[in-house]
């Protein structure tokens, strides 16, 4: 670090420090599950975050988390370091690509204890820890999610030295499989606010697994309703009820032109080829099944 003048208030935001966090949904679910499981006496829960840091160190990817036993009161914070070390070891065994990148807690503010725990992680592990704060009590009527890194602040090497929590942008990352998973999970939620209070068995926060056909149907219906509301809007603009918007107009133009123009003859040919392939495979698989069933029956006759 550069030479600093001790008399001045310092604020270090070093180049290459963490500026954003990308979080996989499983991390949030893990934190929320931990929050649900906490004893009533605990105001908040804490745990460790696993993941990786991008090559330039600017982006932290959070891929996993595990709960920790951290006890705190007004005077003291204690981390069960042995438990932490063991769980970390076990988790890294299972996910060799991950490393410890920080810690999470529930709640809606960073307090003095947070600073202590943060320092603990910074001193015990060779990392620049990231702090993820999840407001599991929905103070603002929503699930507030904030991520922080710390920077030194105040007058260095004096009694006024301290740590400042700097917020970093925090976004969600989904890949295909997780999207499918979350898609189904998202279905298992109450449709209206009323359902929240019904509770018990048979409420709508439960869903089954869909067949491929049902899933396709849902997608098609969704697209249909999107097109319909768009048509409504366009009709409204045409009749003058809704003011025109050039931005939307451009998007619509782009959309319409993104439908590839294929010669109808070519399309027909491609279509028929695919159709025949599909039907052939279908026929073959049905034939195999039948053969197998016959073989089974014959064996039982012998």
């Amino acid at each position: 670090m550069d030479e600093v003048e001790p008399q001045f208030l310092q604020l270090n935001i070093g180049a290459g420090s963490v500026s954003s966090a990308v979080v996989e949904p499983v991390v949030y679910l893990g934190i929320l599950a931990h929050s649900v499981r906490r004893p009533d006496s605990l105001p908040r829960v804490m745990g460790a975050l696993l993941g990786g840091v991008s090559d330039d160190g600017a982006e932290v990817e959070l891929r996993g988390c595990f709960p920790l036993a951290i006890t705190e009161n007004d005077e003291e914070v204690s981390v069960d370091s042995e438990h932490l070390a063991q769980m970390l070891h076990l988790h890294l065994q299972a996910n060799s690509k991950d490393t410890l990148v920080g810690w999470y807690s529930t709640g809606d503010k960073v307090d003095a204890n947070s600073a202590l725990i943060h320092e603990y992680f910074a001193s015990e592990f060779p990392i620049v820890p990231l702090h993820l704060l999840v407001d599991a009590e929905l103070k603002e009527g929503r699930l507030g999610i904030k991520a922080f890194v710390t920077s030194e602040a105040g007058v260095p090497s004096s009694e006024f030295a301290g740590t400042m929590f700097l917020p970093v942008t925090c976004s969600l990352k989904l890949n295909d499989a997780e999207k499918s998973g979350l898609d189904l999970i998202a279905q298992a939620r109450p449709v209206s606010e009323l359902d929240n209070f019904v509770g018990g068995e048979g409420n709508s926060s439960v869903t089954g697994v869909l067949s491929d056909m049902d899933s396709l149907e849902r997608s098609v219906l969704a697209i249909q309703s999107m097109v319909e509301s768009l048509q409504e809007w366009v009709a409204g603009v045409k009749s003058g009820d809704i003011p025109a918007d050039t931005g939307i107009g451009r998007y619509l133009l782009d959309t319409v032109s993104s439908v590839p123009l294929i010669d109808s003859g070519d399309f027909e040919k491609m279509f028929n080829n695919h159709l025949q392939d599909l039907l052939m495979v279908l026929y073959l698989s049905n034939l195999t099944r039948t053969q197998l069933a016959i073989a089974q029956r014959l064996q039982n006759l012998v």
Binding site: E76, V79, H83, D111, F160, G162, F165
Partner: peptide, 24 residues
């Protein structure tokens, strides 16, 4: 930014106390 700067020296010393309290 949330400042945690003006903590008493006593608090800073607690860092050393963040240790295993469970007897495994």
């Amino acid at each position: 930014a949330a400042f945690a700067a003006h903590e008493e020296a006593e608090r800073q010393a607690e860092e050393s106390r963040i240790k295993g309290t469970f007897n495994r």
